[in-house]
């Protein structure tokens, strides 16, 4: 064997599989479906870990928590979580979740989906669910582009960022999601990045326990498309960028937290206020109008 061959063989030494090792998250994951589809250095897996940790921290009964996703990379989130999970159509995660949340008021419904799904094709549902203050938590994973379909420009693509349908750079103004959520009526609004893993975990726990419409934007590295097209390195380089350029500013005026291309990212808990939920308001109002005639909706009435 020549020296080169020997080196090559050594490099390819395959370590033994470690099947007896059980990750603490496994009880919350559909292990039979792993490995997941997300690229190396994508941050969605990290956000899933934060979601599970936040759920554990909230001490909610996991049997009474349902997760809904739409379509896209983040839309696959529901499929890996060992909770009641629904993978709906593109943009319709929030109305599907509205059906679950109103159909069974004992459920806490979380929507984990992407910026394209929730804000572009599903934008109307987002603002209306926030307006009604439906009891649900939105985890909006923002990677600044449509990654699943090949890196097209979306409603959050920063000005001048390159995308496959913005080959000369994006010239549309992007949404400022915390401002959109707040002005639509969300009672809890926060933004973190995939790097702010503990703060994100805390935010998810808080949001899950918050009655009403809570909205968390999570900035997430997309290595294969957004980072590559914009020559930003890989996901790790983006995490380093978040480290150097994220500014924690709790209570910041959401009008001032818009994101420019490779600009500073203001993160923090922006809004945390009290407002009756859709169901609280409905029940209280109808009771005041109908008195004894009013029968509150109590969940499935199916004869079982």
């Amino acid at each position: 064997m020549s020296e080169t061959e020997q080196e090559f063989t050594e490099t390819l030494t395959i370590p033994p599989p470690e099947e007896d090792l059980h990750h603490p998250m496994e009880q919350y994951l559909r292990m039979e479906r792993l490995p997941h589809i997300w690229c190396s250095t994508c941050g969605i897996g990290t956000i899933i870990t934060a979601f599970i940790s936040g759920l554990q921290k909230s001490e909610l009964d996991r049997e009474k928590v349902a997760v809904v996703s739409g379509i896209g990379c983040s839309g696959r989130a529901a499929g890996y979580l060992r909770l009641d999970s629904f993978h709906s159509t593109h943009g319709r995660a929030i109305p599907f979740a509205t059906g679950l949340a109103l159909g069974n008021p004992d459920l806490k419904v979380a929507v984990i989906s992407g910026d394209g799904d929730l804000v572009a094709i599903g934008g109307n549902h987002l603002i209306h669910a926030a307006r009604r203050n439906i009891n649900m938590t939105i985890v909006c994973i923002n990677n600044f582009n449509y990654a699943m379909t090949g890196g097209q420009a979306g409603p959050t693509t920063p000005l001048e960022a390159n995308a496959s349908t913005a080959p000369y750079g994006c010239y549309e103004f992007p949404f400022n999601l915390p401002y959109l959520a707040e002005s639509s009526g969300a009672v809890y609004v926060a933004r973190w990045t995939a790097l702010h893993i503990r703060r994100l975990t805390n935010a998810i726990a808080e949001a899950l326990l918050k009655p009403g419409f809570s909205f968390i934007e999570v900035i997430c590295p997309c290595t294969t498309l957004y980072a590559r097209r914009n020559r930003l390195g890989d996901g790790l380089d983006l995490m380093r960028f978040y480290h150097d350029n994220a500014i924690i500013r709790h209570g910041a005026d959401t009008r001032e937290v818009d994101i420019g291309f490779q600009d500073r990212i203001i993160v923090g808990k922006f809004i945390d206020k009290e407002k009756p939920t859709f169901l609280e308001k409905r029940d209280q109002y109808l009771k005041s109008k109908l008195g004894e005639q009013f029968i509150p909706y109590k969940g499935p009435n199916d004869g079982h």
Binding site: P95, F96, T98, G99, L102, G103, Q293, I295, Y297, P300
Partner: peptide, 28 residues
């Protein structure tokens, strides 16, 4: 409201149909 039902006027028909499918999975 007088028979314990839940009516919601959605923002459009896309949402209406999605909500109906979601609600059905709660057993209603």
């Amino acid at each position: 409201p007088k028979v314990g039902g839940m009516f919601i006027q959605m923002e459009d028909e896309l949402a209406s149909m999605a909500a109906v499918v979601g609600a059905s999975w709660t057993g209603t």
